[in-house]
C-alpha cells in the first residue's frame, strides 16, 4: 500500500510517500525525515519526550499516525529558533539549567511553547508545574524547567507588547 500525504514541517511543505500506514509521526520525523531532535523515550504517550506541535497544539507524536495527519502543520524543536536566534524558551532553558542529560529537553521545550500558546497557566508556578507534568525528566530538572517557562512567557509577553506599541 502506498499512501501519499502532505505535511508542513517546520514551515516547509512536503509531500511524503508512505509505504506503510503504521508509521507514527515520531518515527516519520526521526527515521524518514532526519529530524532526530524529537526523542523517543517510551513510545507509549507516557513520558512526553516526543512532544511536537501539530497545528499549533502540543501532542505526543508517538501516538499519532502520520497518515492520519495529512495536511497538518508540524513544528519540531529544529524549527523553533529563528535562524541563529534562539526562541525565548530555548534561551531560558539554558539560563535556568532546565536540563541535564538533555534527552527530554526537546519535548519539554515544545511542551512549554504549547503551554504558553494555550494561555491557561498564567504566571502561577503551580499551574505551570501541573501543565508541564506530561513531560518526565528523570534527571530531575523540574525546578529549572518551571522557572524557564515562566521567564520565557514573561519575555514573550513583553516582546508582544513591544511589537504592539
Amino acid at each position: 500500500m502506498s499512501l501519499s500525504i502532505t505535511l508542513t514541517v517546520n514551515a516547509v511543505p512536503r509531500t511524503i510517500a508512505l509505504d506503510d500506514p503504521r508509521v507514527t509521526l515520531l518515527d516519520l520525523l526521526r527515521e524518514r525525515l532526519d529530524l532526530t531532535g524529537t526523542k523517543k523515550g517510551c513510545d507509549r504517550g507516557q513520558c512526553g519526550a516526543c512532544t511536537v506541535l501539530v497545528d499549533g497544539r502540543r501532542v505526543n507524536s508517538c501516538l499519532a499516525l502520520a497518515v492520519s495527519l495529512d495536511g497538518a502543520e508540524v513544528l519540531t524543536i529544529e524549527g523553533l529558533a529563528e535562524g541563529e536566534v534562539p526562541h525565548p524558551v530555548q534561551a531560558a532553558f539554558i539560563e535556568h539549567d532546565a536540563f541535564q542529560c538533555g534527552f527530554c529537553t526537546p519535548g519539554q521545550i515544545m511542551s512549554a511553547v504549547g503551554l504558553i500558546r494555550e494561555a491557561q497557566a498564567g504566571d502561577d508556578p503551580e499551574r505551570v508545574r501541573e501543565a508541564m507534568s506530561g513531560n518526565l525528566c528523570r534527571c530531575g530538572a523540574y525546578k529549572g524547567i518551571t522557572e524557564a517557562v515562566l521567564e520565557a512567557q514573561r519575555r514573550l509577553a513583553a516582546d508582544a507588547e513591544e511589537k504592539a506599541a
Binding site: G45, T51, R57, R58, V59, A64, G114, M132, G134
Partner: peptide, 9 residues
C-alpha cells in the same frame, strides 16, 4: 486526566 499533550489529542 492524563497530560496536556494527551488531552490535546
Amino acid at each position: 486526566g492524563a497530560s496536556a499533550q494527551l488531552r490535546n489529542a
